[in-house]
Simulated scan of single mutants.
Amino acid sequence: MSEAATREADTEARDLLEDVVRIPSVSRNEGEAAQRLADFFEAHDREVWLDEVGNVRAPADDGVLLTSHVDTVPGDIPVRVEETDDGAVLWGRGSVDAKGPLCAMAVAAVRTGASFVGVVGEEVDSTGGRHLVADRDSEPDAVINGEPSGWEGITLGYRGLLGGTYVATSESGHSSRPENNAIQDAMDWWTAVDDEFAHDEWHPVFERVTCKPVDFRGGISEDGLSVEATMDVQLRVPPEYTTDEIREIADGYLDNGTVNWNDKVEPVMQSPRTSVARAFRAAIRDHGGEPHLLRKTGTSDMNVYAKAWDCPMATYGPGDSDLDHAPNEHIELAEYDRSVSVLEDVTDRLL
């Protein structure tokens, strides 16, 4: 049995996590899970409410804001606790992304007196995070965002996101004609953009612009007079660029067609020397771990907070991020317990 599994279980924290994992909370349907979190804060005599977009708001000492997201992606994974040689494991959608980090932060918040927000909509458009920054009168002194990093990991960087929809139309004609139709125009534009940002396999993914088409619709129009093409695209943006710079480069390859760029999230890279990063390194070592710094190739609500607030921040939480959105999503409860202890320690240091 591992050292982590021999530690005394944090029953209160585990009960909260299992309850929240058992409540489905796919994006746009977070209400019941959010209410369970609110009930937890009320039981600890904390002020708490659900705001107009559904965020769980439990303000207190703004020396630290602990925040993570309530929503999950779809997927029915039967919820169960399984005993293994290394200790108990909780299976279920959201156990890693991000109900493990979410509940660990809720427990740490009631034990330390820190502010807490459980936000909605992170998996789709960061509705809750965007509302939070717009609704607050002032920024917190520090932010700890909840996403899985493993209990010894500290995430300091995320790539940004530029998303848009390409639309082109051409006159219909016989397929033997040599001129491009709208479908070919779309393919040519996307190939040029993809080639512009191509890197060899040795270039770190975090430092690349990666290009992905995520939907394509095309063919003869209903009236038969034109060929139409619509393509939804996403470009992940490393910190060396802004989304506006990437948009300008991509637009430069347009020959026919237009792009409506409708989703922009700036990249973020925090210094490892901030008060938050230092507190995490010290706390993880004090709990017997070896801290390591992470850069994630996706995006999170930390991108939103870093754009709006000029304060130190990091992302942290239990769980293996390789299990995000996976059909075998599960979390080791001993690791979850240890992350709660680390969060309490870090929050106490910062407060």
Rank of each mutant, 00 (worst) to 15 (best):
G100I: 07
D125S: 06
L162S: 11
A109Q: 01
I144L: 14
A109C: 07
V133M: 00
T112K: 12
T169G: 07
S172G: 10
G129Y: 00
G128C: 06
L161W: 05
V117L: 06
P101I: 03
A168H: 07
A98D: 09
P140N: 13
D125P: 01
D135S: 12
E139A: 15
A109I: 05
V107D: 04
G100S: 11
E179A: 11
V107M: 02
I144F: 08
E123T: 11
R177T: 12
D141E: 15
F116E: 11
G173N: 02
G153V: 08
G128R: 00
D125C: 03
A108Y: 03
E171M: 05
T155C: 14
S115P: 03
N145R: 00
V96D: 00
D137A: 15
T165L: 15
S172Y: 08
E171R: 08
G163H: 11
R159Y: 14
S175A: 14
A108H: 00
G118D: 04
S170R: 04
K99W: 06
G164P: 12
Y166T: 02
V117M: 07
A109W: 00
G164F: 12
A108N: 04
Y166H: 02
R130D: 01
E139K: 11
P101G: 03
Y166W: 05
E147H: 04
G163W: 10
S175E: 10
P101W: 03
G164S: 11
R177K: 13
E152T: 05
V133C: 00
S126A: 13
L161E: 07
S172H: 09
A114S: 14
G157L: 07
A106M: 08
P140I: 13
G173H: 05
R136V: 13
L102W: 08
D137I: 11
E123K: 12
N180F: 13
D141I: 12
G163D: 11
H131P: 10
I144P: 04
P148E: 04
A114F: 10
P101F: 06
T112P: 14
S175F: 10
A98Y: 04
A108Q: 00
R130T: 01
G164V: 12
H174N: 05
V167G: 08
G129D: 00
G173F: 04
S138Q: 14
V110H: 01
P148I: 04
D141R: 15
E152K: 01
G153H: 08
V110S: 06
G121R: 04
P178D: 05
T155M: 09
P101R: 01
E123W: 09
D125W: 03
T112N: 13
L132N: 10
G129E: 06
G146Y: 06
S115L: 03
V119Q: 02
V143G: 06
G129N: 04
A98M: 11
L156C: 02
S115N: 05
E152Y: 00
E179I: 09
G118V: 07
A168F: 07
D97L: 04
G129T: 08
A106I: 07
A106Y: 05
A142E: 01
L102K: 08
D141Y: 09
G121I: 06
D141K: 15
V96I: 10
G160H: 05
G113Y: 05
D137T: 15
D141M: 14
P101S: 06
R159C: 15
G113P: 04
P101N: 00
A114P: 10
G163P: 10
A109R: 03
E139N: 07
